[in-house]
């Protein structure tokens, strides 16, 4: 990345920061008047299929070497609190610790063109992980978020065998430190839940998309696939996009542009 873009990004960040402050001041007092009640506070009714949450990843904007989304996810969901068990091999541990989102770097076999993208649970409409789970612990919430009910997960890892995206992690070790909003314990499987705790409290955002914007890349757009006026549908209308392993017909909630 050269200096020019660096400073441009910096400038944009400042601008965004300022704009945020302004809009906070301007909008906050009026919020109760303009915001639909369902979005304004912690929800009191169960989630419905009025929404289907999803993401658009614009790979052309995803920067080489940037890990903002991964870091944000780690601290949002307490993944950075995991500790390598004493005596475990460094590299093996990387393949045993829970990872919800990872940066993937691809090179086109023909052109040699390099593409970066974040990869997480794709929140499939027809999720293989849910189909195979023997106890029904893997489930799809009404609003399309696929997650694991830890209370019934027996740790059979069949869902990990079934997921085509290596989206799921098994908790291989005793977990001593965890966040209130992100329970975690030895012997269960987990994966990205699109920051469900944020959504449930009326905050329409995910840590990864927020961090990406804060870095000035805007490679991740979060929103409602069912809202034609929403940011996600608007972005999808502008850019051609596809699903990873589209051939499997899973109708993923996470879409990619530029691959």
């Amino acid at each position: 990345m050269n200096h020019e873009t660096e400073s441009m990004n910096q400038g944009r960040r400042d601008f965004l920061g300022a704009a945020a402050g302004v809009s906070a001041a301007a909008v906050a007092p009026g919020v109760f008047l303009h915001t639909p009640v369902a979005n304004a506070a912690p929800r009191t009714d169960p989630v419905t299929d009025m929404h289907r949450w999803g993401l658009l990843v614009d790979t052309s904007k995803c920067a080489d070497g940037c890990t903002a989304c991964v870091d944000a996810c780690d601290s949002e969901n307490g993944l950075n609190l995991q500790a390598k068990p004493h005596g475990q091999d460094e590299l093996k541990w990387e393949n045993q610790r829970a990872v919800w989102i990872r940066k993937v770097k691809l090179q086109d076999n023909l052109t040699g063109h390099v593409t970066n993208l974040p990869l997480m649970c794709q929140h499939c409409e027809h999720p293989p992980c849910v189909d195979v789970c023997p106890t029904g612990a893997s489930f799809k919430r009404a609003d399309g978020i696929v997650m694991v009910d830890r209370h019934t997960c027996i740790g059979c890892r069949y869902c990990m065998m079934a997921c085509p995206y290596k989206a799921r992690s098994f908790i291989h070790e005793q977990v001593d430190h965890k966040l209130t909003r992100a329970p975690r314990g030895k012997g269960c499987v987990e994966s990205c839940n699109l920051c469900a705790h944020r959504l449930d409290n009326g905050d329409i955002s995910t840590a990864c998309a927020e961090a990406c914007s804060a870095e000035g890349h805007q490679a991740l757009i979060f929103g409602d696939l069912k809202d034609p006026m929403g940011p996600l549908r608007k972005a999808l209308a502008k850019t051609p996009s596809r699903q990873i392993r589209q051939d499997l017909g899973l109708n993923t909630g996470v879409r990619y542009a530029g691959i």
């Binding site: 704009a19 945020a20 809009s23 906070a24 909008v27 906050a28 919020v31 109760f32 303009h34 915001t35 979005n39 304004a40 506070a41 912690p42 307490g78 430190h177 965890k178 966040l179 209130t180 909003r181 992100a182 705790h197 944020r198 409290n201 009326g202 905050d203 329409i204 955002s205």
Partner: peptide, 24 residues
């Protein structure tokens, strides 16, 4: 209690902000 910003108490306290994405 750890990283509780999204538990019910704090969320309720922030309720008036939650309409505007930028203000959080």
């Amino acid at each position: 209690p750890r990283g509780e910003a999204w538990n019910h108490e704090v969320a309720a306290a922030h309720a008036h902000l939650t309409g505007s994405a930028a203000a959080r």
